[in-house]
């Protein structure tokens, strides 16, 4: 059970949050220009990294804000939390 430091509310129990999976997969601006492979890449393919993953979390039972987390999926250690729209940190 992590403690997640919501950038808007502070440190809260993990059970207040919902994970939104890998971050920085922007929805294509022109989906119709993509072929099926490219669209599938956006829709389904994931790095599923063992190690530091940049991912999205939502404070669903709190402020309901989305934000980004850099977490090591091999030990669940949260390295960095940063807001939506910010660039991933160099770790």
């Amino acid at each position: 059970m992590f403690l997640i430091n919501c950038p808007y509310c502070g440190e809260r129990d993990q059970s207040e949050f919902v994970s939104g999976g890998e971050a920085h997969i922007a929805r294509p601006k022109q989906p119709t220009e993509l072929n099926d492979d490219q669209w599938a890449e956006y829709l389904f393919m994931r790095k599923n990294i063992k190690g530091i993953q940049f991912e999205r979390w939502n404070h669903a039972h709190g402020c309901r804000k989305w934000f980004n987390v850099a977490r090591d999926t091999s030990n669940d250690k949260i390295e960095k939390i940063y807001k939506m729209g910010e660039q991933p940190p160099k770790l």
Binding site: V18, G20, R27, N58, K65, W66, M84, G85
Partner: peptide, 13 residues
Amino acid sequence: MSKLEDYLQTEWP
């Protein structure tokens, strides 16, 4: 509601 909030906050801020 969650889905709409998600798009609004993350894709179409």
